[in-house]
Amino acid sequence: MLFNKLLPTAAAAGLMALSAQAYALPNVFNDTIANGISQFDSTVVAAGGSVGTAQIVAGTSVYNYTDLNGNPATVTITRPNGSAASFGSAYTSNGITTTGDVININPGIGLDQPGDIPGFGSGVTFTFSSAVNALGFEIGDWATCCTTGTRPADVQSDFGVPATGSGLWIAFDGGNAFLTANALSANDNPGVVAANSFTNFIGAIDDTSTFTSVTFFGDGFGEFLVAGGTLRFSAVPEGSVSNPIPEPGTLVLAGLALVGLGLSRRKQ
């Protein structure tokens, strides 16, 4: 049974006061590929972690790496229901190409289970044999269209998210789902703003604990949407990066008020 614990979207500083001791927000990254990688890596290193990587190769679902303790570890790529993911070659937009091949998302509701946020089932799950709490990767074809869809009222209220938009969601260990980015037009994609390219880097650090699986999905139904390039991941010390102040280029859904600070569970 899957429980999704409420994590509200982050807002621009000053919209609502929130004690760092009272509530810990994930650190979210959404920028161009180059800037996002730089920000993610520097945040992990500053927190006392080191960055592991796995370059995606189409058709390969299991990748080997060495964890922070020097032990052999693996990351396995599947759909959220455990079925095989679909891969494609590296994604290119206006001359900018992902640093590796990609996993096809194609947001839809056909694989959803009762209680899922719409689109969850068509996402991709990364399962780590050695627990992590930081993950980032490259995105292609986000906000090319499909930014006017309306989310169910219960998703809006339970997760404190806007009624419309093409969203990018991340869930740690099948719960703790949060909206990392929301596009109301192509100009909400930082790659488009910087270079007229539908490429960007998305990542999140939830330093409240460590996790063995992370699921990424989109709800811009009708987009192709791919994720991959080179996975970047780490396990940073708990509490080392909580409640960050967004830096330029780091989109934490600026302009949205923090809502729904109580915990809510939605059962599958």
Rank of each mutant, 00 (worst) to 15 (best):
I245E: 11
T212S: 12
W142A: 01
S89T: 15
L18G: 12
S209N: 11
M16W: 09
F216S: 08
I33T: 03
R232H: 06
M1A: 10
D31H: 07
L256I: 04
N69C: 02
L231Q: 06
V124R: 10
N106I: 07
V226W: 07
N4S: 15
F216L: 14
S129L: 01
N243I: 06
S166M: 02
G70R: 04
P114R: 07
S86H: 04
P118G: 13
C145G: 11
D206C: 08
F29H: 01
L231S: 07
F198V: 03
T147Y: 13
S213P: 11
T98C: 00
G48Q: 05
T215H: 09
C146N: 06
G218T: 10
E223C: 07
D207Q: 09
A24P: 05
A73H: 05
A195L: 03
D112P: 08
S19E: 13
G255A: 01
F201C: 00
G70H: 06
S264H: 15
I245H: 07
F201H: 00
A227S: 12
T74P: 10
F201I: 00
G174A: 05
R151T: 07
A153F: 14
A134Q: 03
S122C: 14
A34T: 12
G115D: 05
F178Y: 14
R232S: 00
F178A: 06
T164K: 11
T212I: 13
T97Y: 00
S157Q: 09
G108M: 05
N176P: 10
V161S: 05
R266V: 13
D206V: 08
A58K: 06
